[in-house]
């Protein structure tokens, strides 16, 4: 019974947070452009309805099975990501002993499904988006591995609940200050937003989504938001103590912290320009990755 209750709770959480991100996006761009937002709360729903009413497009000889599966799997992967996180001390959907390894697998499989989404349309712009994404998605994964391993050191465990419990005294965000910023970059990359939007950017006319319309596009856009939510939820648990907090019940703390991380993610995605994929690849390997080495050494010395 419990898995079903928790699944329903997490799906509702993902839907709600997707709506929240869409609202934040609208408010943030309106503020940056200096104009009043348009129906900020309802606009995301209107857009969903538009996509649902649209015809689903086809191209010449697409790989239809993978084209339709990719958005669904992408959303499903986001679901398995949040499933690792406990709502409170007792209620965790997937109490995996090796939670952060599964999270790594989620990242790797995300690269696969985004590639499939771009590949399946049989269109040049989609292909460019797919291949670019792989170039960035793969090395970014290494950064997240370092960051999560660093968080596992003081917890002496790879399970997310144990990592949360290890933060009763001090949150990881203070103990390991480089971790959260590096992990947020990973979040932008996993849902390809802002400076990390190499898959679906406007210069390739929507990239992997350039040929997609109607409900498949709705699922795809939802999956992107769900993945961002999953990143924020894991970040809130690994760096901000998850459900830990005074006065309020645990789940409330988790939701609040996730919402705060999402706010930072949305801000970042609107704030930074995108550099060419070639230079981003160099930047990841020569700056961000050495930075995560430093982070690991820091965390290691501190944990002894």
């Amino acid at each position: 019974m419990t898995p079903i209750v928790l699944t329903v709770a997490w799906v509702a959480f993902l839907l709600g947070m997707a709506w929240y991100i869409a609202v934040l996006d609208g408010l943030w761009s309106a503020a940056r452009e200096g104009r009043p937002p348009r129906a900020p709360l309802a606009n995301p729903l209107y857009r969903c309805a538009t996509m649902l009413r649209q015809q689903s497009n086809l191209t010449e000889a697409p790989d239809l099975l993978n084209w339709r599966l990719a958005p669904a799997l992408y959303a499903g992967l986001a679901g398995t990501g949040v499933a690792l996180v406990p709502f409170s001390g007792a209620s965790v959907l997937a109490d995996l002993e090796v939670g952060i390894v599964w999270w790594g697998a989620v990242e790797a499989l995300t690269v696969v499904v985004v590639f499939l989404h771009g590949w399946s349309a049989n269109s040049q712009l989609g292909l460019i988006g797919a291949y670019r994404y792989v170039a960035i998605g793969l090395p970014v994964m290494l950064i997240s591995m370092f960051v999560l391993i660093a968080a596992a050191l003081p917890a002496e465990s790879l399970a997310v609940p144990k990592i949360i419990e290890s933060q009763r005294e001090l949150w990881n965000v203070i103990r390991q200050p480089l971790g959260l910023p590096l992990f947020l970059l990973l979040g932008l990359s996993l849902s390809f937003r802002g400076p990390f939007n190499y898959a679906d950017s406007a210069d390739i006319a929507g990239g992997t989504a350039a040929e997609v319309s109607g409900a498949p596009r709705l699922v795809w856009e939802f999956a992107r938001l769900a993945m961002l939510t999953a990143v924020a939820t894991v970040a809130a648990s690994v760096f901000l103590g998850g459900y830990l907090g005074p006065w309020l019940p645990g789940p409330v703390w988790l939701v609040l912290k996730t919402a705060a991380v999402l706010l930072a993610l949305v801000g970042l995605s609107h704030q930074l320009a995108r550099i060419s994929p070639s230079r981003m690849m160099t930047l990841i390997w020569t700056v961000l990755l050495p930075l995560s080495f430093v982070h690991l050494v820091w965390a290691g010395v501190l944990a002894l």
């Binding site: 129906a39 729903l45 209107y46 969903c48 309805a49 538009t50």
Partner: peptide, 11 residues
């Protein structure tokens, strides 16, 4: 669904 869609920004 139609009523909601009709209020969306025009794509």
């Amino acid at each position: 669904l139609e009523r909601l869609a009709a209020r969306a920004p025009v794509p």
